[in-house]
Design a protein around this nucleic acid. Sequence first.
DNA 1: TTGGCTGAGTCTGTCAAGCGGACTTATCCT
DNA 2: AGGATAAGTCCGCTTGACAGACTCAGCCAA
Lengths: 162, 162
Amino acid sequence: MSEQAPEAMRWSTENCTISRTMQVLGDKWTFHVLRELFVGVRRFEDIRARSGIPRQVLTERLAALIERGLLRRHPYRLPGQRERYEYRLTQAGLDLYPVLVAIIQWGDQYLPLDGGPPIIPEHRDCGERVSVVLRCEAGHEPDARQVAIRPGPTAKPRALAG
Amino acid sequence: MSEQAPEAMRWSTENCTISRTMQVLGDKWTFHVLRELFVGVRRFEDIRARSGIPRQVLTERLAALIERGLLRRHPYRLPGQRERYEYRLTQAGLDLYPVLVAIIQWGDQYLPLDGGPPIIPEHRDCGERVSVVLRCEAGHEPDARQVAIRPGPTAKPRALAG
DNA sequence: TTGGCTGAGTCTGTCAAGCGGACTTATCCT
DNA sequence: AGGATAAGTCCGCTTGACAGACTCAGCCAA
């Protein structure tokens, strides 16, 4: 690398997919909320008790996730109680599964617990453990070093190019 | 609760892999920093200029990521300048690629831009686009609804079971 | 040798957000 | 009427983010 600026410096980040996605997910508590929903915990008090999120913050996060289309409110009624609402994943929310699994997978590898993992994603049909793999359209399964992030059709040049 | 409480309510979240991983990654800016490194931008000023992170926050984040083993500092010297340091991904950092790709993939689907994506992960060897897929050890490729998160060997029962 | 340039920080004051704990509301049961 | 409960709302404090100015170290040119 004789000192030319990296190619990426020519491109703006203002419409970057990662930035835009992080505006939806990039909060300290959001993945904790999603985890609860993924494991089947759907009620405000249950989510709060398990995750330890301050009530006010949980209220705000749930509202934001609903507004962004990841969750929806669903009425339920316990016997002898009034109707309340629980929170469920929409398809958009469910489609975050690969992100969750990728996070779990990384954590299991780099922050392992003695005795094995506390949670395991598994295939309901066959009971085997599920992981994520990188795969290209040609069917190869490259490892990280063989993947590059390139500008796409809507990549914007940076105003103050370096 | 005759609607019996979800199974997950019996388990504690205190050692949950997602929580532990989020202590490393779960900050608003962390993925922005990682993105820069993944696209090849490695110097403090470049990262700051592209990502818009306040200097102080960037300093603090880089230090945290180094301490957690995701980055390392690497000396470099521009002609006619003194030696400085740039930041590079370690293997642990590189192994976050599936997380990044999963995030990009979700963003491309649910927060699409007119005209296509601004960044595309591709296989260096063949130039084809890379995505992540869920796969179980038996070789199936389940979709999100067919995956369940189950307690593993170090799952802890909750103190105040509900 | 002095003075300016540059990348990579540090310092400071302001302001928003997170936090724990107490309080509120609506409905049901006894 | 009184009590229980889930799901919030309210409050005051503390922490962290933020923008903008300042610092520091080494190199170069005059």
